[in-house]
Amino acid sequence: MPQDTPLIRFGVIADPQYADIEPWLETDRYYRNSLAKLRDAIGVLNEEDLAFVVTLGDLIDRGAESLAPVLEIYGALRHESVLLPGNHDFSVAPEHLGEVHRRLGMPAPWHEFLRGGIRFVIIDGSEVSLFSTPEGDPRHALAVERLRALEQAGAINAMPWNGGMSEEQHAWLEDALARAKVAGEPVVVMGHYPLYPENQHNQWNCERLVALFDRSGNVLAYLNGHNHEGNLGRHGSTWYVNFKGMVDTEHDNTFATVAIFADRIEITGHGREESRSLPLKP
C-alpha cells in the first residue's frame, strides 16, 4: 500500500537567469521577466507546507549587479532558502568571483544537511571550470586540461559552459554517502549540472558520479537544472531529475514541489514543469 504521509516536502526552482537585458529570441529566453516569475513562484510556494525551497543554480545570467534584485524577491520567501550557483552565476567581473558562494548565503561550496531523516548533499559542479576561477588559478588550468581531454575523446559534454569537481570534493562526496549509509539515511544529491541520461549539458565527471551513486545504493535522487528543456532518467536505484529553466518563454512559469514518501517521490509541477510519480525500490 502507498504511504500517505511524506517524509519531507520542499520546493524547487531552476535557472531564473535574471539580467536587465533584451531577450534572446532564438532560445526563447526572456531575462527580465524572471523577476515577475520568481515573485509568482514564491507566492505559490509560500502557501505550501515545505521544509525549504532549493534553487538549482543560475539565479542570474550575468553581472554581479543582477543578483541584488533577485535576492530581494527571495526575501519574501517564508521557507528556508537553499541556493547554489550555476555557470551563469560566475559570469561576473574577476574581482567578484570569490564572492559568489558568500552572496548566495552558502555555508560552503559543497555541504550537506539533514531534514526529515533524509541527508541532502549539495555538490559544486562549477568547482573546476573555465568560469569559476580567473586565469592563472590552478583550478582554471586543470579545467583547460580536462576540457581538452574531453574534446579529444569526442565527449558530447565537452562544452566550455560545463564544469567538474576536484578530487577533494569527490572524496568528500564519497565519505558523505558512506556516512549516510552507516546511519541508515537515504540521500538526495542536488547540483546544477545533469549527470544522466547522456546530454551535452552534463557535468564533466558525470559517469564517475553515476557509478558512485550505484555503488552507494542509498541515493534516492539527483536533482539539477542547467539543461533548460528538462530531462528524466533512472540508473540503478537513483532517479535523475532535470528541472526546466524558468527564464525560458515570455510568460509561462516553471517550478515544482517535491514530496518524498517511503515508497515514491511525488513531483507536482507548476506551469511548464511536469508532475511525476517516481517509485522507489524497497
Rank of each mutant, 00 (worst) to 15 (best):
N242H: 09
V210S: 01
W24H: 14
T55R: 05
N218W: 05
I265H: 05
G116R: 13
G163Q: 03
P160D: 10
I122V: 15
A141F: 04
E167Y: 02
E48Q: 15
G163S: 06
N231W: 06
V54R: 04
L104S: 04
N46V: 10
L7R: 15
F243H: 03
N157H: 15
P107S: 05
R9K: 15
A262Y: 11
A183D: 14
V121I: 15
P197C: 01
R272N: 10
P23I: 10
V54D: 03
F243V: 01
T268L: 06
R215T: 03
F120L: 11
D61V: 05
F120P: 01
L71N: 09
D175F: 06
A143R: 08
F261R: 08
L25N: 11
F90V: 10
R115A: 14
L173M: 04
V82L: 06
F255H: 03
V188T: 05
H192F: 00
A149Y: 07
L7H: 12
S91C: 08
V12W: 00
E99D: 15
H88G: 05
N253A: 12
E174Y: 00
L278T: 03
Q169L: 07
T55F: 07
E151W: 09
E47N: 12
P23Y: 11
A221D: 02
A180V: 12
K281G: 09
R115Y: 09
D58V: 05
E145R: 13
H96G: 07
P138A: 08
Y240S: 01
V12K: 03
W24Q: 13
N46L: 09
V188Q: 02
E112V: 08
C206D: 13
L25P: 04
W110Q: 04
V144C: 12
E48W: 04
N87M: 03
H101Y: 15
N199R: 12
L83T: 07
R215M: 00
D137K: 06
R276M: 15
G163F: 04
G43H: 12
Y30A: 10
T133E: 10
F120I: 09
G57W: 02
R276N: 01
G245L: 10
T55P: 01
A14E: 00
W239F: 03
I73V: 15
P279D: 11
W24I: 11
H192Q: 00
Q169S: 06
V54Q: 00
Y30G: 08
A36C: 07
A68S: 14
E99T: 14
H79P: 02
D49E: 15
S91K: 13
G136M: 02
V187I: 02
V54N: 02
E48A: 10
M165A: 04
W204P: 04
R103I: 08
R148T: 14
N202Y: 06
G105C: 10
L147N: 08
R102V: 11
P282N: 13
V82Q: 03
D248M: 15
N33D: 13
H170T: 04
P160Y: 07
T133M: 07
F243K: 03
H226Q: 00
R32A: 14
G245K: 09
G184A: 14
G245M: 10
S132L: 10
K181C: 01
I122G: 02
F52C: 07
